Structures are given as structure tokens and as C-alpha cells.
Simulated scan of single mutants.
Amino acid sequence: MTEELDFNNLIPELHYYIHRKPTPGWKIEPCITAFIDITYVMHGKAEYTINDQTYIVNKGDLICIPQNSYREAVTIPDDLIECYATNFLLRNKTGQNVSLPLPVISHIGTNPQLIALYNDMHSEWLQHNFGYMLKVRGFLCLILHLILDQLLNKTNNAQDDPRIKNSIRYMSAHYWENLTTEKMARRFHLHPAYYGNLFQKSTGMTFKQYLISIRLNYAENLLKSGEYSVGEVALQCGFSDIFYFSKLFKAKKGIPPSACFHEVKKL
């Protein structure tokens, strides 16, 4: 299912948001949801019944209730739930409703980055400043990306180590330079062999492979602008040999860079 869904073209439409802090008598009345409900549990417990199955949710759980599902819930009186809840529709670029390939309950633990995004969205939601819904939708997109990245992108573990995260940030800003494992290892006071193993374990690619991928992605972007020749693009992206660049580009993108350039020129 994850292979069929184009995550780059998901368009969420937010209908309702709440930072929920229930009283002991709180409950969600039985209903059929006309939306996707994603709820992140910050503290406490609650009992949810979703499509005739009952779940006890706890701190660190993510609840994903599909559109058109039966839903009801009650809090646990001696351990009141606190959570962030968003109700939204999700469409693809052609306007068709799509669902998220997530289990009803996922335990993602305490995620400071996710909490910070919810806090920012909460602040904007309450202030109702000029264009606040546009900003809130932006936060919702970031929240969905973070959730999907954590639960579905099994090759992306770079966030686990700040040294690798900072390495990738540096590579993205200095991709055209003569970057090597040895130079980057010195930045973090690590042995090159240890740094290289750490990088590959975190990203699933060697340092060189990751750097080439960044360079080729930027090269594709430049070619699509139609403003540069293939040779100019190669040099700007850190390739001194245009033939080597063309070989790598074709292997990665499936077409030679000249074809990409000429296609843009036709437009």
C-alpha cells in the first residue's frame, strides 16, 4: 500500500484541531467519522472503540482513525488523557480522497520535534492572526511528514545522531566542495573509519553515495530551469569531468542530462 501512495502529492484539508484536556466525565459520543482523525497522546490513558475493536491508549501512542470509521472514546478517570487531535481530509493531486497506510494504534513515544510542531500549530490556531489557516495547514503538513517519516521510512535514521544530521546539513550547503569522509570526520573529532560506518548505518548509504545523490538532485533542478548548459551544471555541482557527471546522472535519473536540458528548452 505504501508503494501505491505518492507521498509527495498529498494535500491535507484541516477541518478541526484541539489540544484536548478532558474532565473525568469526558467522552466522544459514538459516530461515524467524516474525516481522518490523528490523535497524539501526551499523557494519561483513554479507551477508544474504533470499528468495533476496543483499545486502551497510553502516553506516546498515535491514534490514526480512517475516514468513515465508527468511533467512540472515554477517558480513564484516575489517569486523564491529554492529547493533540486533528481531523482532516487527505487528497491526492487529482482531488481524490486517500487514506494513510498506518495502523490504528502506533507507539511512537515522546517525540520533542512532534510536540514542538503541535505547540506551534496550537499557538497559531488560538491567535487567529491574518492568514492563520494557511500557516496551520503548513504545520499540519510538517506533522504528517514527521509521522510518516518515523513510521514508514525505514531507511531514514539520520535524526538519531546529531553528528549525522549536522553532516547532512553541511553537505547540502557545501555540496560542490571537495568533501571527503576524512574532512567531515575531523569536523566532529572522529576517526574516519568510525565516522564512515556511522554515516552508512544512519543513512543506508556511504558518505560518497549520499554526496553524489545530493549533487545529482541539485543538478536536475538546475537543468530543469533551462538557464544553464550541461557543462555549467556539472561544474556548479562539483563535477570537474562532464563525462563522469553524465554517466552518473543517467544511471541515477534514467536519462542523460542533455535530454533533460533539451526537454526543458522545448517547453
Results as ranks from 00 to 15, higher is better:
Pro77Gly: 09
Pro77Met: 07
Asp79Gln: 08
Ile81Leu: 13
Ile81Gly: 01
Cys83His: 06
Ala85Phe: 03
Leu90Asn: 06
Arg91Pro: 04
Arg91Val: 12
Asn92Met: 06
Asn92Leu: 11
Gln96Val: 09
Val98Glu: 07
Leu102Ser: 00
Val104Glu: 00
Val104Gln: 00
Ile105Val: 15
His107Arg: 04
Gly109Ser: 02
Gly109Met: 03
Thr110Arg: 07
Asn111Asp: 09
Asn111Trp: 02
Asn111Glu: 02
Pro112Val: 03
Ile115His: 05
Ala116Glu: 10
Leu117Cys: 00
Asp120Val: 02
Met121Arg: 07
His122Ser: 13
Glu124Arg: 12
Trp125Leu: 01
Gln127Arg: 12
His128Pro: 01
His128Glu: 11
Asn129Lys: 10
Asn129Tyr: 07
Phe130Arg: 00
Phe130Cys: 01
Gly131Arg: 02
Met133Asp: 02
Met133Thr: 02
Lys135Gln: 11
Arg137Ala: 09
Gly138Ile: 05
Phe139Lys: 09
Leu140Asn: 03
Ile143Gly: 04
Ile147Cys: 09
Leu148Met: 15
Leu151Tyr: 07
Leu151Ala: 04
Leu151Gly: 09
Lys154Cys: 04
Lys154Met: 05
Lys154Phe: 11
Thr155Ile: 08
Thr155Leu: 10
Thr155Ala: 09
Asn156Asp: 15
Ala158Leu: 10
Asp160Ala: 14
Asp160Phe: 15
Arg163Asn: 15
Arg163Thr: 15
Ile164Asn: 11
Ile164His: 12
Ile164Tyr: 11
Ile164Pro: 12
Ile164Phe: 13
Ser167Gln: 07
Arg169Val: 14
Tyr170Arg: 11
Ala173His: 14
Asn178Met: 14
Thr180Ile: 13
Thr180Arg: 11
Thr180Tyr: 12
Lys183Pro: 10
Lys183Thr: 14
Lys183Val: 10
Ala185Asn: 06
Arg186Asn: 11
Phe188Ser: 06
Phe188Pro: 06
Phe188Gly: 06
His189Leu: 07
His191Pro: 04
Pro192Gln: 07
Tyr194Thr: 15
Tyr194Ser: 15
Tyr194Gln: 15
Tyr194Phe: 12
Tyr195Asn: 06
Gly196His: 12
Asn197Ala: 13
Asn197Gln: 12
Gln200Thr: 10
